[in-house]
Design a protein around this nucleic acid. Structure first.
Length: 114
RNA sequence: CUAGUAAGUCGGGUGAUUGCGCGCCAUUUUCCUAACGAAAAACGGCGUGAGGAAAGUCCGAACUUCCACCUCCUCUAAUGGUGGAGGGGGUAAAAAAGUAGCGGCUAACAGCCGUCCACCGUGAGGUGAGAGGUGCGAAAAGAAACGCUUCAAGCGAAAGCAAGAAGCAUCCUUCGGGAUGAUCCUGACGGAAACGUCGGGCUGAUACGGCUAAAUCCUUGCUGGAAGCAAGAGCAAACCGAGAGUUCUGAGGUUCAUCUUGGAGCUUUCGUGAAAAGUAGCUCGCUUGAUUCCGCAGAGUAAUUUGCGGGACAGACAGAUAAUCGCCUAAUACAGAAUUCGGCUUAUAGACUUACUAGGAUA
RNA sequence: GGUGGGAUGGCAGAGUGGACGAUUGCACCGGUUUUGAAAACCGGAGUACUCGGAAGAGUACCGGGGGUUCGAAUCCCUCUCCCACCG
C-alpha cells in the first residue's frame, strides 16, 4: 500500500484524469496521466467487475498493481496524477508479467525522471 | 473389518526482505492563543488487524427518520363552525398486509427444541409451507381442466385412433343382494395437546379418484404502518447584499375572514465580510453488544435460561489486513468486513473427534 | 453498500392458476392478382423424441433446477445472466 499522501482520492480528481489526461495502452493495462498543482505524485488503481466477478481476485490484482509501482515511486516525476486501469484478461497474468508491463507503460508515457 | 447414519471441530504453521490501516506512548515541526493549552503532520516504539460462509439478500429484529391514530402539556388566534404552532408519552381500536399440526424457546422469525401424523429406509435415521372450512345447515369458488375403470358414435381391411356417456372401494354371489373397509354421528380409556386404541349407531346422510386457496374466498387466534446508515444528526467554504412595510396576483385551507406558502411591482431602513441559507467538504452515527467462548452451580427431556469467575472482540471511505522468495506438511478448496445482531440458503480441497446402525470375522 | 425490475417462436412483444404450445406485428412458405415484381387480399407454419403405411395420437420444452397444486409461463424456494435507481 502506498502512503496516504500519494493516493488519488477524490472522485473529481479521477474524472479529471480520465477526461483530460493522456492515455497509453499496453497489453491488458491502460495508463492515464495528467498534471496536478501539488508537490506530490498521486496514484489510482481501477479494476472493474468486468475483469472478474470475484472480489478476492479483484483485490489481489489491485495489490499487485500497487506493489509493481511502489519500489519505483522515487524514480517518477513529481506533480502528476496517474491512474492504472485493468481490462479483462489481466487476471490470467502473474506478478512478473504485470510488473514488466507497468515498467513499459511508465517509459512510454515519459513519467520517469531523466 | 466393510458399508453407512447423526452431531461437532479445524480449514494452515513458520523464516527472511520490503510495505499499509487503526489505537496508545514519546520526540520534532507547523498553525492558533496574551498565556495555559488544543489541532494537524512527519519520524520512531509497542499493541492489534477478514469468514465459516464475510456471499445470496430469502426471512426476522435493533437503531434512525417519516406517517396514522390515541392521550397529555405549553404558546397563540377566535367564534357562525373550529383552528394553527411546538413538545412529551403510547400503540388500545380500525384498516391493510402477513402467519398456521400440537406444546414450548426466543427481542423476533418461515428459525430452534420436544412431540403427533403421513411417506421413505433392513436399520441408525431422513423428508414434509402439515390450522379448520366453502351442496344446505352462520360465512365462503367454479368443475369446462387432469387421471382411472367400463361402455362407445365415428374413421379404418385389421391392429389401432376416438367425440361422448356412466361410475365410493374390495371380496363373495343364486345377479335380487350380502360382507368388510373408508367417510359421517357418538361413547370409554391413554395423553398437556395434536392424536392413538377399543367399542356403539346405521346403510340413513356425503361421495368416481385426488380433497386442492403462501395469487384469489370464509372462520379462528397473533402483529400500528413505511422507508432504510447513501437512514439520520452536527460544523461549515465558494457564489450571492439583507431585512421591513405596502399593493396586485397564483396555490392550499370545502366557502368568506384569519392563517400558510409561491411570484411580480413600489417605498423605506441597515450594510460592506455580518446575517440568513445548509451546497462542496469535514465530523459524528461507527463499533463493547439482546455479543461470543470456557469453567462451576441451579431450572428444564431439550431448545433455552439464571448466577458467579475468567478470556476475546478489525473499523476503512477509490476503501488497510499485503507483495516476493524459502522451509514444514496431505495442506492444492470456496472465498474478502462496510450500521449491528439472530436465522435460512447456496459454494467448499482436505484433515479430525464422538455416538449409533447393518452385515461379516475371531475369541 | 442498499433498493427495485426483467429473461416467452428467428426478432419485437402480450399473456397474473384451467378452453394456452402460446394472441399480435415483422420476417418465412404457398395461393389469388400481374407480362414479371412490389403492395394488397386469402391460407399455412414452433422444436425434439416415440408409436403408426397413413389418418392421427402421446411425451418434453416460456433462462437452469426443485417444490406446492387434481392442474403452473403464472404461486413459493434456489442458481445463472441482464438493466435501472439511491450521496
Amino acid at each position: 500500500m502506498l502512503p496516504r499522501i500519494s493516493r488519488l482520492k477524490k472522485n473529481l480528481d479521477i474524472e479529471r484524469v480520465f477526461k483530460k489526461g493522456k492515455k497509453v495502452r499496453e497489453g491488458f493495462l491502460v495508463l492515464a496521466v495528467s498534471q496536478n498543482d501539488l508537490a506530490e505524485t498521486r496514484f489510482g488503481f481501477v479494476v472493474s467487475q468486468k475483469v472478474s466477478k470475484r472480489a478476492v481476485q479483484r483485490n489481489q490484482l489491485k495489490r499487485r498493481l500497487r506493489e509493481s509501482i511502489r519500489p519505483r515511486v522515487s524514480e517518477i516525476k513529481k506533480g502528476l496524477d496517474i491512474i492504472l486501469l485493468a481490462t479483462p484478461g489481466l487476471e490470467k497474468k502473474d506478478f512478473w508479467e504485470i510488473k514488466k508491463t507497468v515498467n513499459l507503460l511508465l517509459k512510454k508515457s515519459k513519467c520517469l525522471r531523466e
